[in-house]
Design a protein around this nucleic acid. Sequence first.
RNA 1: CGGGGCGUAGCGCAGUCUGGUUAGCGCGAGUGGUUUGGGACCACUAGGUCGGGGGUUCGAAUCCCUCCGCCCCGACCA
Length: 584
Amino acid sequence: MKLSQLVGQRLKEAPRDAQTASHIFLIRGGYVRLVSAGLYTLLPLGRRITRKIEQILREEMDRVDGQEIRMPVVLPADLWEESGRYGKVGSELLRFKDRNGKDMLLGMTHEEAVVQVARTELVSYKQLPSMLYQIQTKYRDEARPRAGLIRVREFTMKDAYSFHNSQECLEKYYERCHEAYVRIFKRIGLKQCLSILSDSGMMGGAVSHEFMAIADCGEDTIFASPDGSYRANREVATAKLAFTKDAPQPLSKVHTPNCKTIADVAGFLKLSPEQTCKAVFYKDQDNKLVFACIRGDLEVNEAKLRKAIQCPEIDFANDELIRAAGAVPGFASLLGIDANKIRVVVDPSVSESSNLVVGANEEDHHMLNFNFARDAAGREHIIVTDIATVREGDPCPLTGQPLQALKGIEVGNIFQLGTKYSAPMSCNYLDQDGKSKPMIMGCYGIGVGRAMAAVIEQCHDDYGPVWPMAIAPFQVHLIGLNINQPEVRQACDKLYQSLIDAGIDALYDDRGEKAGFAFADADLIGVPLRLVVSPKTLAQNQVEFKQRSWGKRSELIALDGVLPFVQQQIQELMALCRPDTPTA
RNA sequence: CGGGGCGUAGCGCAGUCUGGUUAGCGCGAGUGGUUUGGGACCACUAGGUCGGGGGUUCGAAUCCCUCCGCCCCGACCA
């Protein structure tokens, strides 16, 4: 490819809207262009990269016996009615009617569609296990697209679905897919990509993992122990907190004028927040009250709370709703709350601690020495479960070491779905005993564009991306300086042709721009290997060579040895992304 | 959906508060020339519904109303 013909201009200045490294360089380098919020056109450079990523995805999916298919983007709503998701999923599902008034939708994920395939094509246990995958467009009507390709509305996804006749088979296969994912992210050149335990959210199912590319601009917070033995998303992370357990002291009421917050109470009573109990009121989608109880220094984790009460949507309750339940806002506690009337969730930090300060459920009063076992005894409707948000430095649940907080971009995830979709949609197979049984399913997704952006986040310098060889838009970037001189032009043309003939993916800057201009463009395009030919180098029968990652350093190589040298370099850089040793 | 910011040439911006000739500047683009190893220089040229609509006014990029779009924070998110 000649740079003079390449569509997609490099920009000296980034659009004001671009703030993260990947967004800035994707725009400045001419990889993508914004069409509308969260909708991008991939220009030739961007498309070259995503094609290479997609090829790696195909190879690795095929390695775990996947078979590529293609399902429609547009799906009939009735298919989603079958699984029950049509009504459950919110407005990120784009719904519309076709010309006949039939309800349609744009697929945001394809469990329903693939189940329809499986239930007609897979009928016997002899055909299981089986895995189908596709690389295809997904549409999600995101409330807030952000950071270029990190969060978009339309994107390309590799989505894979496996079908099994037993949980054991699923678990074994899930492990294979996990390994495939580790290989994939290594092959595309991510330097740090961790698989972590995650909340399965709307996908349902028991076990799921997210693959997180570690990056400061990431939207997810991960907690990890220093030795790497424990890693979890903030939504599910737990900590092994120590609770002080002293002999229970008698309950006593104390006057606490205007002490509505934990800080007020602790300050007024000259106690630490750890010695208090926080009462937080939520409401569910039916406006019913949910009462969460946690030690004063901790914060309620809403994802955990939603899970604890099996409720997809919660929000803070207003004072009116709290009063209607007989509680006094700011001074509420388990004391005086009828656990039979409202749902109560108590964190172990409260049930396992002793002599806490709690609200007296009376204006301007608190109670000293609350002990859950003694003072809330016999309330069988109370759910006691972990609803605490983990903080950096909290003890790891496995090792007790202080947990580290990391920011990550979710580039992939895998789920053990079980029969969540197969059962309601009658996706059955005939077992050896002739009985019809629902298939056990797993699903496995990777966002292609997001993966490309994540690579930039991890692989760039001040001047542009530093593409890993495996997904670089080109393998070699050839620059001719003073190319208006016929001997330079001739030498460059010849070198370019020999690279092409050798099957090397070469980009040829034949524009005759000044050196600085050409180099700045080359940095933005980020091709891993660079060759510079100029009158100076030609005079010595040499070519200047550098790796993109070297910064401004370079070395001279003999002109007649360029081809084998470049081939060697390509091999060496490809080796950096070889997935030989799965580590994550 | 809540809070904040922004919308003037392909990109980055000035002008708006305090209304007034023909709406400017830099980058980028085109032509000609001088240059040529880290984003050169000179000259000329092209490129604008000042986000849209409505209003106030002798006169609106500028003031008022309204709609739309984009970005950031939050909520939400397989």
